[in-house]
Simulated assay, not measured.
Amino acid sequence: MYRFMKLLSAFICMLPHGMQYALGTLLGEIAWLAVPPKRKRLAIGQILFCKITDDPTEAKRIAKSSTTRFGRMIIDVLRYPEIKDGDYLDMIEFINREYLDDALADGKGAIVAAMHSGNWELLGGVLASEGYPLISVAMKQKGDADKFINEYRRLMHQHVTYKTGVREMVRELKNGAFLGLIMDQDPGDDGVLVPFFGYETLTAVGPAVLGRMQDVPIIFVTMHYSPYSGKHELVVHPPIYAEKTDDKKRDVAVTTTLLSEFMEDYIRRYPEDWFWLHNRWKWTRCYYGDKIETPPDVYH
């Protein structure tokens, strides 16, 4: 797998840009065909569940679009050897970067919060390549996939730590690092119950806990591809500061609720950008019954 991905990357980098993304479109269509029907039904059902639309056909379109975009994402990552020395700037419109600059000048570090929305891999690579002291917290992949993606992250000057490295996270924050945390997926029992699209569900507490502990800003950074400009809009949003009273549990819940509200608002704006194939409301269905239902003919 590692050698295949390296060869594919070398081949992609030799192609004209138009052919690169045409191939990405093809890969995206193949990815949608490869998704099992049960997983397609889950994605479509979650879109209806969240009332993004009440039309099953439109829900299917959103689910498909959110999956096929992975073809373009893969092409962007495979192009890292081609764009690593600053050529990525032609692909990016960087908006409100002053919020990151202010945190950098302050020297206390920051939590950079992100979602599985847009091209989150390219987002991290651009921030690191632009000189921000970003440490991306990631899940370890299996075998050669982990070796390949981390080698390509290093091409874009990213440092990666795994989710088990909590001591390293705290230490690096104290040294002024920007800690990149993706917080939109089900964290299991490590999360806290907060509302998300109208239903309580388990949500990651890492940004709230670390932001409160170190008194650093939590800054959401998002990336959305605009077909009108042909560029990724990398937007830095105003910082959020964690609540800090004598009640730590309450503070974490209040702050996580604010972050959850931000994510919900953003996903409503760009539903095609989000990863609907993930079983996000697993806890909700386990405790409240299976409310995520889809007409059986929608996903075929």
Score class of each variant (00 low, 15 high):
residue 134 L to P: 08
residue 135 I to R: 06
residue 135 I to K: 09
residue 136 S to H: 04
residue 137 V to D: 09
residue 137 V to N: 11
residue 138 A to C: 11
residue 139 M to T: 13
residue 139 M to S: 14
residue 143 G to L: 05
residue 144 D to M: 06
residue 145 A to C: 01
residue 146 D to K: 02
residue 148 F to V: 11
residue 150 N to Y: 03
residue 151 E to C: 04
residue 156 M to Y: 12
residue 157 H to R: 14
residue 157 H to E: 03
residue 157 H to G: 00
residue 158 Q to M: 15
residue 159 H to D: 07
residue 160 V to T: 14
residue 161 T to I: 15
residue 162 Y to V: 03
residue 165 G to R: 13
residue 167 R to V: 01
residue 167 R to H: 05
residue 167 R to M: 04
residue 173 L to K: 08
residue 174 K to L: 00
residue 176 G to N: 00
residue 177 A to Y: 01
residue 177 A to V: 01
residue 178 F to L: 02
residue 178 F to C: 02
residue 178 F to W: 02
residue 178 F to H: 02
residue 179 L to S: 07
residue 179 L to K: 10
residue 180 G to H: 05
residue 180 G to R: 09
residue 181 L to N: 10
residue 181 L to R: 10
residue 184 D to A: 10
residue 184 D to F: 04
residue 185 Q to K: 13
residue 185 Q to F: 07
residue 185 Q to W: 10
residue 186 D to I: 09
residue 186 D to E: 13
residue 186 D to F: 13
residue 186 D to A: 13
residue 187 P to S: 10
residue 187 P to V: 11
residue 189 D to W: 02
residue 189 D to P: 02
residue 190 D to L: 07
residue 190 D to F: 09
residue 191 G to S: 08
residue 192 V to T: 15
residue 192 V to N: 10
residue 195 P to T: 01
residue 195 P to F: 09
residue 195 P to Y: 06
residue 195 P to H: 03
residue 197 F to P: 10
residue 199 Y to W: 03
residue 199 Y to P: 00
residue 199 Y to G: 00
residue 200 E to G: 02
residue 200 E to L: 12
residue 201 T to P: 03
residue 202 L to E: 02
residue 204 A to Q: 12
residue 209 V to W: 01
residue 209 V to F: 06
residue 209 V to N: 06
residue 210 L to G: 03
residue 213 M to A: 10
residue 213 M to N: 06
residue 214 Q to L: 15
residue 215 D to A: 11
residue 215 D to G: 01
residue 215 D to Q: 14
residue 216 V to W: 03
residue 217 P to Q: 11
residue 217 P to D: 12
residue 218 I to N: 07
residue 218 I to V: 09
residue 219 I to P: 04
residue 220 F to V: 05
residue 220 F to K: 05
residue 220 F to N: 12
residue 221 V to I: 15
residue 221 V to W: 09
residue 222 T to P: 03
residue 222 T to E: 08
residue 222 T to R: 08
residue 223 M to V: 06
residue 225 Y to G: 06
residue 226 S to E: 14
residue 226 S to N: 15
residue 227 P to L: 01
residue 227 P to E: 09
